[in-house]
């Protein structure tokens, strides 16, 4: 029920706005201009993929949205309220604390908000169950595989029930099979949880499979140069991956990416 809801709202174009970036520019003290006039609107419950060549400022854009860095120019607005406070962030690396158990890693955001172990236990275990790791609560990160670590990282991002989930090439470092499985699980979670997801990737195939909308960024200094609606309804599964329309979308996204790389 909620799934179709989310899908139609995201691709319908009439979605309520969650977040808007207008003319955002970011330059660094060493003179590098990472972003130049970035315009981006993110709808509530949308699954948006940001596709771009390496070093185009995709990560910088996510850091700006998360409030981890300030824009040099331009505006970042949350039209319907909300703030950096209800954001979950998944990094390219699992970024777990090696000295803490899986439970403690997932508990971290709540602990920082002053929720003790006992009061947080149910929520943490729920988050772990969502990513299929309830049996590994007592394990240490070094005992887990790359894909499992990534799941812990996702559980940690969703334990605060954020409205917006920012993902910075989260599956770039895992093997293909794990990546496909994580893609499926992520879509299931997104449909179930009613999040908004901004997912950065340099993989055309991943972007098309996941997103309701793909925006393509140019090479540095980054800005949005193309936008692609992926009209395929959710839920999506392997039949979509093998369909002709998938290949067509990939072809178009790939062409846009190539153009962006060259013109940037």
């Amino acid at each position: 029920m909620r799934a179709e809801d989310a899908g139609s709202r995201a691709s319908g174009g009439t979605a309520e706005l969650l977040l808007e970036l207008r003319g955002v520019t970011k330059s660094f003290p060493n003179g590098t201009v990472a972003l130049n006039g970035l315009d981006l609107a993110v709808g509530r419950h949308e699954f948006l993929c940001v596709l771009g060549p390496s070093g185009c400022g995709k990560s910088t854009a996510l850091r700006l949205i998360a409030g981890l860095a300030g824009a040099s120019d331009g505006q970042l607005a949350w039209p319907n309220g909300g703030s950096a406070g209800d954001i979950g962030f998944v990094f390219q690396e699992p970024t777990l604390m090696p000295w803490a158990t899986v439970f403690d890693n997932v508990h971290l955001p709540l602990r920082l908000q002053g929720r003790g172990r006992r009061r947080a236990e149910d929520v943490v275990m729920q988050a772990l169950a969502l990513v299929g790791l309830a049996d590994f609560a007592g394990a240490y990160p070094r005992e887990l595989s790359g894909g499992m670590k990534m799941r812990v990282s996702i559980a940690r991002a969703l334990v605060t029930r954020p409205r917006l989930l920012l993902m910075d090439e989260p599956f770039a470092a895992v093997d293909e099979i794990t990546r496909i499985r994580l893609n499926h699980d992520l879509l299931d979670l997104w449909r179930g949880q009613g999040w908004t997801v901004v997912f950065v990737t340099h993989s055309v195939y991943e972007a098309v499979f996941l997103a309701a909308r793909v925006v393509v960024m140019s090479a540095r200094p980054g800005r949005i140069v193309a936008e692609l609606e992926i009209g395929e309804p959710y839920p999506r599964d392997d039949t979509f991956r093998l369909s002709e329309s998938y290949l067509r979308y990939c072809g178009r996204a790939s062409a846009a990416l190539q153009q962006a790389t060259e013109t940037g």
Partner: peptide, 26 residues
């Protein structure tokens, strides 16, 4: 880890929390 530092900042960790939960164990 710089990303962990970012994560702590994202969740609004105080200096003391950053020290206690991140820097000292590291």
């Amino acid at each position: 880890d710089h990303n962990l530092v970012d994560l702590f900042r994202l969740y609004g960790a105080s200096r003391w929390q950053m020290l206690r939960f991140l820097r000292l164990p590291a």
